[in-house]
Design a binder for these strands. Structure first.
Length: 600
RNA sequence: GGGACUGUAGUUCAACCGGUUAGAGCACCGCCCUGUCACGGCGGAAGUUGCGGGUUCGAAUCCCGUCAGUCCCGCCA
């Protein structure tokens, strides 16, 4: 049907007769000569219908409109001098159309313009999602889909061809498991009254594959979690899921660095510096107040709890006395950049801290000669030696603004982390085009859930505790790691428990009784009785990784057919009601009562 | 479950403090134009101001409710 793609034609094709198929990107009619920009997945080529050279194509060239589907046959011709378009990859040539065949027309007015030539006018996302087929035709989205494909292709080449991984598909129809996110449920018709759950991840199956001697497994796996949506969260999303046997944590991190480097080299042509920096969870929380720090800029936090425990400023000493802490976010040149109004209630910097639970933001402005400009209570409450030590620890120079967080440790970290990120953006401290990967290791095994009054697994309950900490699991570090890119977690994993007795201890620590553990995970525990190799793995959020690589701000722009924040598909209008008969067959009845709409 | 923002022509936006017939760019339609590439010129059509109610002499504008989309908190092992 065609001989070439529009976008691949170059000067070397001059003289050839080619047949192209594609969409009309744009048409320029000069009353005689007509230009048609023809677009396919690979780019745009200019078609010319010239009354002197190709009069036979004029009637059709006159009829075509934007987004018509046409087939063009003609001779590739070089453009002369000023006719060359340097902004087009095919700008040195054009095709004199001997025939233009209209394969299909557009019968309605387009809801938005597909052509990238129309300037970057933003189209409402609601409209883009409803007409997703037109949206995906646009250059930006077509590029995103291609990038995603390139990433997956690079992953497969590396894991399969270089590292001996095999891809194994695991069930979508699964069993509901405790902990974790809310499950999507699927009723079983054959087993009435029983339900499948869609997988939140292939976790258990990949571990069983290790027991099965698979050695190295990966899967581009769809995962489902019935939780509320965000810019970076969809109810169904894709993981690169990996698991491997007989590898230490260090070896797993090493292999994954190679994988990431391979992806960026293959897709972006970028050589990433190795090894990636590694931070323990403890260190990350101390220095950045979060477990996925953006290290493209400084603004590291400084601990001063020990220093200010008995100072005269009650906000500080009080916070420490009740088990909390005081930390400082030093902002070089912050004195000029951030006014007092912005730090006080009503200000934007204050709001960031307040939304994380902070009551306020104490501050010190460091002036010339180490003079400190601050509120009276702090001036009089701190001794000269305390002031001197603050300057020393923060390395503050004239012009530096010191922002204080004083509360329980979590609130201090959370609020200063937010302020840190906010200020970095505000002061333009985030370098573009920099890729800062890092590993965060030694996550805690558990954290206390105050609502349920019990410990919860930070990663998941199959994560192996650090052997050194096995004596007291409640405070144990896990052999778990996250990989972070520019402040976004793109993947996480762990070494797994492969001994039944350790697994039972961990279940006990999170309050999962023997009976329930047997009922929910008996198949895994049983498998552990039959020769389980030491193993571990990792899972990457593919949508997120592609989002960062494409510069998009939502994973919806990396997914061909995403859901809205209300978890609806605007293209198909899913979800939708079903026939009564379908429910009957499943012995399912809805108890849902639609809310009464007033004023109707 | 909660907070915030948005909704006006096909589309992107405008319309001051509530005051004539709700405007503009692009798209669309018609005519003209033989080298453009965001072609150009002239003309035209196009509106339930998301929906429902209220206040008012008068509502795109103010109030209440509702729907949809987006961002965030909760939630997401």
């Amino acid at each position: 049907m065609r001989t070439h793609y529009c976008g691949e034609l170059r000067a070397e094709h001059i003289g050839q007769t080619v047949t192209l198929c594609g969409w009309v990107d744009r048409r320029r009619d000069h009353g005689g000569v007509v230009f048609v920009d023809l677009r396919d997945r690979h780019g745009i080529a200019q078609i010319v219908s010239d009354p002197e050279r190709t009069p036979e194509s004029y009637p059709q060239a006159d009829k075509v409109r934007s987004e018509y589907v046409v087939r063009v046959t003609g001779r590739v011709s070089g453009r002369e001098g000023g006719a060359v378009n340097p902004r087009l990859a095919t700008g040195e040539i054009e095709i004199y159309a001997e025939s233009i065949e209209i394969l299909n027309t557009v019968n309605k007015q387009l809801p938005f313009q597909v052509s990238a030539a129309d300037g970057g006018e933003s189209v409402k996302e609601e409209l883009r999602l409803k007409y997703r087929y037109l949206d995906l035709r646009r250059e930006r989205m077509a590029n995103n889909l291609k990038l995603r494909h390139d990433v997956v292709k690079a992953i497969r080449r590396f894991l399969e061809d270089q590292e001996n991984f095999i891809e194994v598909e695991t069930p979508i129809l699964n069993k509901s498991t405790p902990e974790g996110a809310r499950d999507f449920l699927v009723p079983s018709r054959v087993n009435l009254g029983e339900w499948f759950a869609l997988p939140q991840s292939p976790q258990l199956f990949k571990q069983i594959l290790m027991v099965a001697g698979c050695d190295r497994y990966y899967q581009i796996a769809r995962c489902f979690r019935d939780e509320d949506l965000r810019a970076d969260r969809q109810p169904e999303f894709t993981q690169l899921d990996m698991e491997m046997s007989f590898m230490s944590e260090a070896e797993i991190l090493e292999l994954n660095e190679s994988l990431i480097c391979h992806i960026f080299k293959a897709v972006k042509g970028v050589d990433l510096p190795r090894p990636f920096p590694r931070l323990t969870y403890r260190e990350s929380m101390d220095r950045y107040g979060c477990d996925r720090p953006d290290t493209r800029y400084g603004l590291e936090l400084v601990e001063v709890s020990d220093l200010l425990a008995d100072c005269g400023f009650k906000v500080f000493s009080g916070a420490i006395a009740s088990g909390g802490s005081v930390k400082i976010l030093p902002i070089p040149n912050g004195n000029d950049a951030i006014s007092n109004v912005r730090i006080k209630p009503g200000g934007d910097v204050f709001r960031e801290a307040a939304e994380a639970g902070a009551k306020g933001l104490a501050y010190i402005r460091v002036r010339e000669d180490s003079e400190m400009d601050t509120i009276g209570a702090i001036k009089t409450g701190l001794s000269d030696s305390q002031k001197a030590e603050i300057l020393k620890r923060t390395g503050a120079e004239a012009g530096t603004l010191l922002l204080f967080g004083a509360a329980d440790v979590n609130t201090v970290n959370k609020s200063l982390d937010r302020v840190r990120q906010f200020v970095a953006k505000d002061m333009n401290l985030v370098p573009e085009n920099q890729l800062n990967f890092l590993w965060v290791t030694e996550f805690p095994m558990f954290e206390y859930n105050a609502d349920d009054k019990r410990l919860e697994a930070v990663h998941h309950p199959f994560t192996s505790p650090n052997p050194e900490d096995i004596g007291d699991l409640s405070t144990a570090r896990a052999q778990a790691y996250d990989i972070v890119l520019n402040g976004t977690e793109i993947g996480g994993g762990s070494l797994r428990i492969y001994q039944r007795d350790v697994q039972e201890k961990v279940f006990a620590a999170i309050g999962l009784g023997d009976e329930e553990a047997q009922e929910k995970f008996g198949f895994l525990l049983n498998a552990f009785e039959y020769g389980t190799p030491p193993h571990g793995g990792i899972a990457y959020g593919l949508d997120r990784l592609v989002m960062l690589m494409s510069g998009e701000e939502s994973i919806r722009d990396t997914i061909a057919f995403p859901k809205t924040q209300q978890a609806r598909c605007l293209l198909t209008d899913a979800p939708a009601s079903v026939d009564e008969q379908q429910l009957k067959e499943l012995e399912v009845r809805s108890t849902y009562v639609p809310p009464k709409v007033e004023n109707s």
